[in-house]
Design a protein around this nucleic acid. Sequence first.
RNA 1: GGGGUCGUAGUGCAGUCCGGUCCAACACGCCUGCCUGUCACGCAGGAGAACGCGGGUUCAAAUCCCGUCGGCCCCGCCA
Length: 589
Amino acid sequence: MKLWKRTHSCGELNKGNIEENVTLMGWVNSRRDHGGLIFIDLRDREGKTQIVFDPKVSKEAHQLAHNIRNEFVIAVKGEVSFRGKDAINPNMKTGEIEIRISEMQILSQSKQLPFSISEYSDVGEDARLKYRYLDLRRTEMKNNIILRHKVSLLIRNFLNKKGFLEIETPFLTKSTPEGARDYIVPSRVNPGKFFALPQSPQLFKQLLMISGFDKYFQIVRCFRDEDLRADRAPEFTQLDMEMSFIDRDILFNLIEELMATLFKEILSAEVKRPFPRLDYDDAMSHYGIDKPDLRYGMKIHNLNEFFKDTQFSPFSEVLAGNGKIGALKTEQPEKFSRKNIDDLDLFVKSLGLGGLISIRFKEGSELQSSLKKYITEETAALLKKEMQAQPGDLVFIAAGSTEKVNQVLGLLRIKIANTLKIIPKEQYKFLWVTNFPLFEYSQTEKRYTSVHHPFTAPVDEDIAMLESNPYQVRSKAYDLVLNGNEIGGGSIRIHRTELQQKIFNLLGIKAEEAEQKFGFLLEALQYGPPPHGGIAFGMDRIVMLLAGASSIRDAIAFPKTAKATCPLTGAPSEVSSEQLKELHIKLDL
RNA sequence: GGGGUCGUAGUGCAGUCCGGUCCAACACGCCUGCCUGUCACGCAGGAGAACGCGGGUUCAAAUCCCGUCGGCCCCGCCA
């Protein structure tokens, strides 16, 4: 059977093609067999077209069409015809026409599918991932993959126009001590030695700056062997960028233009510029998180002042210990029953705080709360003013260490917003978070570690504090946040060897170790490095948000599960003892 | 590493709290037949699950207990 030549896709024919003879190929999306007439929606990547088998047109084709089942692949020849006024389907792009079939070939058959391709049926993610190639036939996933392509193309075109070069960097590279756990690849020809897959092309892009490629970008896979989340995959794609001779504002401006272009081209959404900026410290104290969702309010208030003389010992102890009494006023307070509030209390406890206290404001300085006897009428009035509370309003209070209170109230804020469903869809609130601390203390490692990475430059006026007060030093790092998602982050880098050495020292990385791990960078920094900085974006997250999806997996053609496995291929899997032997690897399980 | 939640026909789910009424319900899909204007076609009939796996309690377990595996979500972790 010779394969015919396809003349059109299933998404392009319309009234203008009437009376044309066409050849279509595609999958049988649905079959409506009326005995006399058989209708089939033929589907390909571009869309669906209704084809009709009428014995008056071809007895043979009509006969053959009885054998067709869903997801068979067929080729059909026929004439494009108008459906007739009453038969038009306004929900289909090709809904005014149909193809009256004169000849058909069955190109391949299909077993009954493990799930329906129809957009009207729900399918569990288990089944979808195991049969991902079928899942990708479904409209929603297909559109996400097409959208992802468009995003990549827009980015490449935009950056090309701005003078950027896309340059590839190695996947088989060197393990670095800071940062995430590496995925490791053994080197057969170098027994006992290992490559690491890149967590990001960080060092290479800095080297490219030293090479003089002053505007670099790459859409590139990165790998991190850490535990996963809805928005975190073990291998993920970054839009990685670096520029020389720039300051933060040049970069911000460029990125804002890029984002506005993306959102306009993809969603026809106008994005307000410039994007607001928020200091890390303010983000933490007002939202309890470094990636606040600005689509809704419920900011965290600090109530320390109001309880400085309190007799309520849990609070006075917190204040004595330099802690925080934080509060947030919920929206839609009328929706909170005693049971709801108890559940939130449990939620707060599960995150490691003592509990949640609620205050329901009434008329005047009246209030209803387990804390009532510790609150004077005067304090009640002040509280009411601070929280801008109306009668009926509900305020949640938590106390503990400042970090914990911020974190827990931040998570509570998100939980309440989700529960109340007050987060507006189709609204895009970008935010730059700036002035991150340079260092943080790592409980697990018992030393300072970089908040961003060890190549991040400190804020100039804080450099003097590096030794005396390293915890207070701010960095020239920034994150781009969209609707509560960190979609990108970067920094202005250190471009002087001495400062880089000093940072390594403070991080407890010995000169010898620094030499061994980053020697090549330190050496490169001695050969005329330009001042430079950059940013990297989570492509999968951006596509996820543009697609309106809630999991990064819906933005990836062949994603991994939360346990970093692939149900489709069965990866990861054992390898033969011969393979291990060649690599000089012995297992110790 | 910790917490939560789910696991029942091909798919999605009900039943699980309060064990027997469940040789497990419903919808979609599938199979057979009918149907010339449907478009998530319709109508009639039919097949299909011993309830993730292992053990225990009980006269009796999808339902209770213990363990285990897997999916998803969160905390830790993710420069």
